[in-house]
């Protein structure tokens, strides 16, 4: 499939690969796919930003190429790198040939001249290590390019990305310009550690994913943890909603909900009591103080609506 037909089709296709989303999310994804616009997805950790990119790739039947960003990420790690070691190794192996080549040279400069003529043998794709961005551009078929946690990269790298996103071509001095055969669908995700530049944002469609509304979270639990009894699932999702209402250092996200659901199954529990909440706190809260707070409020949290 090369695109989605409509917003509803997008929503259904995503659901078919296990990603459950609101019509708003589906609309923005649909527009991004239909117009080849990069998509900047922001939101708290664990609400399914990365998962969205994977689901889009899967439902479009495109390969996904992922670039994980981090502080200090540079072009060599993101775009391409020459494999010096391999080049050196080849030089060693073809030493004899090189000797022949320069053997008849009258002077040092002539020898250098002769080697220079053969330079292209060493700066060819054979010695190039393609990194995710170059792979995405040179891929023969359209791909989904996930640039994950772009907020962790440095501003300089962001500027470089911006250039790439505007014309989808790179120039490798030794080899010339590579232009994308087909524009990849680019999904950038951010936890808003820092704000992206206006220029980058202007390039992208923007999507903010928040903690899901209860019905949606319930649907996610149903699809990802099918073994959980319906009533318990409902109860748990309602409790999660209340926990998010507390003033926590780190609010639990969808991943925590799923972990919690799995824990309840593993412990073979079929109701959610304050005691159960307290016993399974470790799954929901990463911070000790958060856990203490939830434990304090466990009666309220576990109330059956």
């Amino acid at each position: 499939m090369n695109g989605f037909d409509s917003v509803e089709d997008t929503r259904r296709a995503l659901e078919a690969v296990g990603y459950i989303c609101t019509p708003q999310v589906a609309t923005v994804v649909f527009l991004a796919a239909a117009t080849d616009k990069p998509l900047l997805v922001e939101g708290p950790a664990g609400v399914g930003k990365t998962e969205l990119a994977k689901a889009v790739a899967q439902s479009l039947g495109r390969p996904m190429i992922r670039l994980q960003c981090y502080e200090g990420l540079d072009e060599a790690k993101a775009l391409y790198e020459w494999e010096y070691a391999k080049q050196l190794l080849y030089t060693q192996i073809v030493k004899e040939k090189v000797r022949e080549l320069i053997g008849a040279a009258a002077s040092l400069s002539e020898a250098v001249e002769r080697i220079a003529v053969e330079e292209s043998a060493f700066f060819s794709e054979r010695f190039m290590l393609a990194r995710p961005l170059l792979k995405a551009i040179t891929a023969p078929d359209p791909v989904v390019l996930l640039i994950d946690e772009v907020d962790k990269s440095d501003p300089e790298f962001e500027a470089f990305l911006l250039e790439l996103l505007s014309d989808f071509q790179v120039t490798i001095p030794e080899l010339g310009t590579r232009r994308a055969a087909s524009i990849p669908l680019v999904v950038l995700t951010s936890n808003s550690f820092r704000d992206m530049s206006d220029a980058l944002k202007r390039r992208c469609l923007h999507l903010y994913i928040d903690y899901p509304p209860p019905e949606q979270e319930l649907a996610i639990v149903r699809s990802k943890v099918p073994g959980l009894a319906e009533a318990l699932a409902r109860h748990m999702v309602a409790a999660m909603e209340r926990i998010r209402g507390l003033e926590l250092k780190k609010k639990p996200s969808i991943s925590e909900t799923l972990d919690w659901a799995r824990a309840l199954i593993a412990l073979q529990l079929d109701t959610l009591s304050p005691e159960v909440v307290e016993a399974t706190l470790g799954v929901i809260c990463k911070h000790r103080e958060d856990a203490r707070q939830v434990a304090q409020q466990s009666a309220k949290v576990a109330a059956s609506s």
Binding site: P23, L40, K201, H206
Partner: peptide
């Protein structure tokens, strides 16, 4: 005519931070 779609269209293009 689907307001949720219309709303998302405008918002994704015009409001790019929380």
């Amino acid at each position: 005519l689907d307001e949720s779609q219309f709303f998302s269209l405008l918002r994704a293009n015009m409001a790019k931070s929380r």
